[in-house]
Design a protein around this nucleic acid. Structure first.
Lengths: 122, 122
DNA sequence: CAGTATCCAATTTGATACTG
DNA sequence: CAGTATCAAATTGGATACTG
């Protein structure tokens, strides 16, 4: 998502941290448990390796998640949530709750519009 | 913003409603008081007429705001928040609060990264 | 005043092949 | 396994001129 610039309300900062298409899901998953790269790829159906890497790096930069490498014959990497990431996850959950409570309302609205559009302009 | 599809957590619904670059600001402004088109254009410096119109229409479709036309010699239109829009604004405020509280943390992180990058790889 | 219509630029996301 | 590199597609946002 394009960076927002209006910082009067602080929402921009939050959305810049979480705006990527997959970031809330990543945050959610690593908050449940530390996840490996391949694991996240499976958990987020449709994400490409490039984008997953990108968003993980950004979230690492933002101190939302932590990357730990376990050396070995086959390399292993784990991503886990940071304390800071937890605080964001909590805040995000409020919006998620709103979404859950009102997605019916939203869906109905969309349908109403659809019906209105398909009405034969009588 | 691109539509999210993961609806397990409800965040997608919320972000689809508020994802546009200006929507939170629009919601915020019309929540403070009913606003006219030109007024919003002034209040949201940098928004183009096209985009403002687009986002207003989408938010109207989503039942977040209401459009009222006052006929007259010079036409006048007012956008006001709906009850539903208020509930979203409240939810968004939680994230805004997070942003406000932690933007210092975020900024520091970004600076740390900048410093790291500009360090002459010694 | 309150938009619409076009055209264009920027950014984000994705598909795929390849590497340590 | 955990990525990187490259190229292309899709969306969004923006500038500007014009209209009822």
């Amino acid at each position: 998502m394009k960076k927002l610039q209006h910082d009067e309300c602080g929402f921009a900062a939050a959305l810049n941290a979480i705006g990527g298409k997959w970031k809330t899901m990543i945050l959610w998953e690593v908050n449940l448990a530390p996840r490996r790269f391949g694991e996240l790829r499976r958990l987020l159906p449709g994400v490409s390796e490039k984008v997953l890497t990108q968003q993980l790096r950004e979230m690492e930069t933002d101190d939302l998640i932590e990357r730990t490498v376990f050396p070995g014959a086959v390399q292993r990497v784990e991503y886990s949530v940071t304390a800071f990431g937890k605080t964001l996850n909590d805040a995000v959950c409020v919006l998620s709750k709103w979404g859950k409570e009102h997605e019916r309302h939203m869906a109905q609205r969309q349908q109403a519009v659809q019906a209105d559009l398909s009405r034969p302009a009588a």
